[in-house]
Amino acid sequence: MIQNTESLSFKYTFSSGQTAYILDVPDSFTYNKTITALGLTQSSPSIVVIGGASKMSPESKMRVSLLFTKVLAPFAETSQVTVFDGGTDAGVIQMMGQARRNIGGTFQLVGITPKAKVNLPGYSINLNLELKSRELTALEENHTHFVLIPGSNWGNESPWLANCSSILAGNYPTITILINGGKISLSDFILNLSVGRQAIIIAGSGRLADEIANTINGIKPSKDPMIQNLTRTYYPNQLSVFDLTHSLDILTNRLQAYFKPQIT
């Protein structure tokens, strides 16, 4: 892979032969300029996938994997939806990329992650800060685009996910799916809700998703004031819950109903 010095966005080839467009975002870039520089100039409905896969039971993990391969990836493909996530090769983000590959998907899958956290062999990332040590992670190679944003900590990507997905959607529908997740996912989730996006919580996937779902349904309300405030502020106008024990067709139907009015 040869770095293209004439453009901030370049085509990167992974060792497997998979390719993706990568934007090494300068500190001065706005969200709008980032979307344009990445080459995403045509508005598109969007889905933001946030969360993790920690402490899932084997049964829940299998069910979540099916949710990606049977619902989210096929829906994004048939409905021309752009999917945004954290871009790393782990947890539910890895599941999203693998689901796209498994169905032979062509939909846009955009990963947004702090550039200081990325291991990108053959490319020297433009860091305007000195780090004593770097905990590097691989990118999920089945994505079509990556946005390497300024920052050295997980969570720096949260406002970029919320805003870039909304900007690309424009007047099209956009929604957030929360699966499992922890503290950083809570920050992601609150930011997504704060920009006006609808959200679906996947109950039964564990940790944060279950804590919010259980607070909403009153089974075991969270003692976390952030979660209490989140449910008071956004439920039921922006928040809904899907239980993993239910038929996945219900989630497909819900997405179709939400996106159908404005899909072209």
Rank of each mutant, 00 (worst) to 15 (best):
M95Q: 06
A257C: 05
S240V: 09
E140R: 03
S65I: 03
N171Q: 14
I201P: 01
K260H: 12
R232C: 07
G39M: 05
Q42D: 14
G111W: 07
S124R: 13
T82G: 07
Q98S: 09
N32A: 14
E141W: 01
T19I: 04
S54E: 15
S46E: 07
L67W: 05
L161E: 04
M95D: 06
N237S: 14
N153K: 15
L191D: 09
S240C: 10
A199M: 00
V81I: 15
K132P: 01
R254V: 09
P150H: 05
M62C: 07
F189K: 06
L72A: 06
W160E: 00
I263S: 07
L161Y: 02
I216F: 04
V110Y: 04
N128K: 11
A73F: 11
V49I: 15
I250E: 15
T144W: 10
S185F: 10
L208K: 00
S79R: 13
S247G: 02
S7Q: 14
P58F: 09
S60N: 12
S65M: 10
P261I: 10
M1P: 13
G181V: 08
V110T: 08
K132D: 11
T245K: 15
I212R: 01
L136N: 07
G104R: 12
N156Y: 13
P74W: 09
I190P: 00
S194N: 12
G52M: 11
D85K: 00
S7L: 09
S194R: 13
T113D: 00
V118A: 01
F75R: 12
P121F: 02
P225Y: 03
W154M: 13
H246N: 15
R197K: 15
G51R: 08
G104A: 06
G39E: 10
R207T: 11
K70M: 01
L255S: 02
I125D: 11
L40E: 01
A213Q: 08
A257L: 14
L168M: 11
G151D: 03
L148A: 06
R101E: 14
I177G: 07
I167D: 01
S205C: 05
F107P: 03
L239E: 03
T176H: 02
S46I: 08
G104M: 10
Q98F: 02
L248W: 09
K260G: 03
T34Q: 01
Y172Q: 12
G17D: 10
T82M: 02
Y258T: 07
S28L: 09
N119G: 06
I219A: 13
G122S: 10
T19L: 00
Q94G: 09
G17M: 04
W154E: 07
N237Q: 15
T78E: 15
Y235W: 04
A199C: 01
L72G: 02
A213T: 06
D249H: 10
V83R: 01
Y172E: 02
R100C: 03
L127K: 12
A138D: 15
M95F: 06
I227Y: 04
A162P: 00
L186E: 12
M96V: 09
M62T: 14
L178N: 03
A203F: 08
E211N: 13
T231F: 04
V195A: 05
G170M: 10
T78C: 04
L38W: 05
